[in-house]
């Protein structure tokens, strides 16, 4: 039986293989994704993001367990950083989820970023589609530990949960641009630690400054994930947000934005491959570099020439 059919039927070996093929950009993966595309768009996509050590994996583990109690099947895509020096990675998110391994209603896949900078991995979108097409009702995407500007998750998930912990910085952090702008829900984890209430207040203050008073008001929840506290409320709030997206029609806008950004990325990727090929042809770039160093040529002219050639081909 072919891989696509096996994925549709939820065969775990097949799902895993297809994700690997997508990560390796194998041509057969693109063919399979084309075929599976009509089966996607059914899952609810939840993004979990926050700084390293804030408890994203533990929170994900507890979220999955609560969703399982409610009878839902869950796919998890957990992302950890790839070394820019060796290309290797230690993917350790499963450590916090080891008792989920045997649950047939859960599929966990760890991915290395492989050079992607926005907090996700290169093939995250493909992995989500594959899990979606194989019937998982919820898909949780756990980003790498992020700093301030890795916000690709918001272009990927239906609901983005931003996880904070006490003790990371002052209230200026909360009004900076970037990660604090993308939360549909805010979680202050490790809430038994000193300063938790202050973090809650800082986030509330930040949200109060939002000019947009219409629509969804992001709730701020306190959790102690390691002790399974606050998880039921978190799942309830996530579901409420997803319902809000459906009822307000906002889901359509979000999905349109997501698809358009994906198309953009794919086009850029294809072009950048072509540019790389063209620059390598007959040592074109090497040749131009020598000229530029001698000031016989400049980078702007070279760019014009390359783009013109590409468009005429």
């Amino acid at each position: 039986m072919d891989l696509v059919q096996q994925v549709r039927e939820g065969n775990r070996v097949a799902i895993a293989r297809l994700i690997t093929q997508a990560e390796n950009e194998a041509p057969e993966a693109i063919a399979a994704l084309r075929e599976l595309y009509p089966d996607t768009g059914r899952a609810r996509l939840i993004g979990i993001t926050g700084p390293p050590g804030s408890g994203k994996s533990t929170l994900t583990d507890k979220l999955v367990k609560e969703l399982r109690k409610r009878g839902k099947s869950v796919g998890v895509v957990a992302i950890d950083p790839t070394s820019p020096f060796t290309g290797g990675a230690i993917l350790g998110d499963r450590i916090r989820m080891s008792d989920l391994a045997l649950d047939k209603g859960v599929f966990i896949r760890s991915m290395g970023t492989r050079g992607s900078l926005g907090g996700l991995s290169k093939a995250t979108h493909d992995a989500i589609k594959i899990l979606d097409a194989s019937g998982y009702e919820y898909i949780i995407i756990e980003t790498v530990g992020v700093g301030q500007s890795e916000v690709d998750i918001v272009k990927t998930a239906d609901t983005t949960v931003v996880v904070s912990v006490p003790g990371l910085g002052d209230d200026i952090q909360a009004i900076k641009a970037g990660i604090m702008e993308i939360g549909d829900l805010f979680v202050v984890n490790k809430a038994d630690r000193d300063g938790a209430e202050r973090v809650v207040n800082e986030i509330r203050y930040m949200l109060d400054l939002n000019p947009d008073k219409e629509g969804w008001h992001p709730p701020i929840l306190k959790t102690i994930a390691a002790q399974n506290q606050g998880i039921i409320e978190l799942v309830d709030n996530i579901n409420e947000h997803l319902d809000y997206l459906q009822e307000s029609g906002e889901i359509v806008n979000r999905r349109k934005e997501r698809i358009s950004s994906e198309i953009n990325d794919l086009i850029l990727k294809r072009f950048s491959q072509k540019v790389t090929e063209q620059l390598a042809r007959e040592d074109y770039l090497e040749h131009q570099l020598d000229k530029i160093l001698k000031k016989e040529e400049n980078p702007f002219n070279v760019v014009d020439q390359v783009v013109e050639k590409l468009l005429n081909n």
Partner: peptide, 11 residues
């Protein structure tokens, strides 16, 4: 990792 492998550690 240093050899360039992706290592999944289970605990």
């Amino acid at each position: 990792r240093d050899a360039g492998f992706e290592v999944i550690y289970t605990g």
